[in-house]
Design a protein around this nucleic acid. Structure first.
Lengths: 189, 189
DNA sequence: CGCGACGTTGATTTGCCTCAACGATTGTGG
DNA sequence: CCACAATCGTTGAGGCAAATCAACGTCGCG
């Protein structure tokens, strides 16, 4: 089960058997039922997670009680509240499962251990973060300069697999619009 | 002049004299006049830049000709179109100087050289990118769940130095609102 | 000086939200 | 296995925050 992660990492960097063992040792498997929290607002994010199977979302809840989905991830993605995970401060966001999921989780100590024992892992993470940065930049740009309709069209082109698996109102939230607006946008396509 | 960068990096990781020499060798100084482009849409971003002095902005231009500022950076920040820099594809964004600026620039080859010769630099970059990720997450969240006024108030608290140096209409653009709206928001504070 | 860059103010428009009601589907406990 | 409750998507009416369009005053600078 950890093997798919090892394989994934190996696409970017080369791992010796010793390296692989080190990584295998630090990740733990965790299963989540649909709707189960991985992280709840107010708690500290002790773990970062690789999604091995299933689908997660991160979201915040504003003062009106409205949810705002900041991230949706499926197999091969990572999920964590980086702020809380890095600083040890309580998180202001939530992460839960949209489907029954299997995660490979890593705590701070385990992470440091890998960074120390497998220097190449540092590079893997750096490259992962670079890609993430590009994606975030894209998303921000999309939020700032495109209409609801344009954002939706871009989304379904870019993430067709997510569209199939995630309820429409969550996609609306991810796009920063209401479910009603998304419904109306879809009608005229 | 490269020394301030070295010092900056040394806050995160330890550098030997050899390491420092390697870094010194790879960065080049570049001066920009106010309004001068560092990167122009359609061109490939051959360099990533550390802002040693001055102030830069990255922005895109939409189909109506409206500018959307995605980033404003001052001393100690980094500026680049990561997408173009990493992929070698033409950039769809622009970077120019808001003030006369001094940059320390690094091309892809130089960057690879540092990563290979100074393994610790990999860690520095990883940590920098992690911070960037946290900041981007924050910003996205702010765009999705806060009003124009709330975003402005947060901004002036978080970046008072930028407020003093950058024209108001650019801050409006960064916040994703029009100059008129920002003017009205400011009036009632 | 004269022109462009910048900020302000007013009038009007608009894209999206809010509120509300309604079917269809899913799932769950008795 | 059925009944009832959530969950989900849709549609309509009305409202609002921010955009657009337009005009104007000020400042700085080539």
């Amino acid at each position: 089960m950890v093997e798919s992660l090892i394989e994934d990492i190996s696409k970017t960097i080369h791992l010796s058997e010793t390296d692989k063992d080190c990584i295998r040792k630090q990740f733990k498997v965790k299963h989540l039922r649909k709707k189960q929290y991985f992280l709840q607002e107010g708690n500290v994010a002790f773990h970062s997670a690789y999604i091995n199977k299933g689908c997660l979302r991160s979201f915040t809840v504003d003062k009106n009680g409205t949810e705002h989905i900041s991230q949706i991830g499926i197999e091969g993605w990572w999920a964590a509240d980086m702020y809380s995970f890095l600083t040890g401060e309580p998180s202001s966001s939530n992460i839960d499962a949209i489907e029954d999921s299997e995660l490979l989780i890593l705590d701070k100590v385990g992470r440091e251990a890998i960074f120390d024992e497998v220097p190449q892992f540092e590079r893997f993470m750096r490259i992962l973060l670079e890609k993430n940065m590009v994606a975030n930049q894209h998303r921000l740009n999309s939020m700032m300069s495109h209409t609801a309709e344009e954002r939706y069209v871009t989304f379904i082109k870019k993430y067709p697999k997510i569209v199939q698996r995630v309820p429409q109102h969550m996609i609306a939230s991810y796009l920063g619009i209401t479910p009603e607006t998304l419904s109306r946008v879809r009608k005229q396509l």
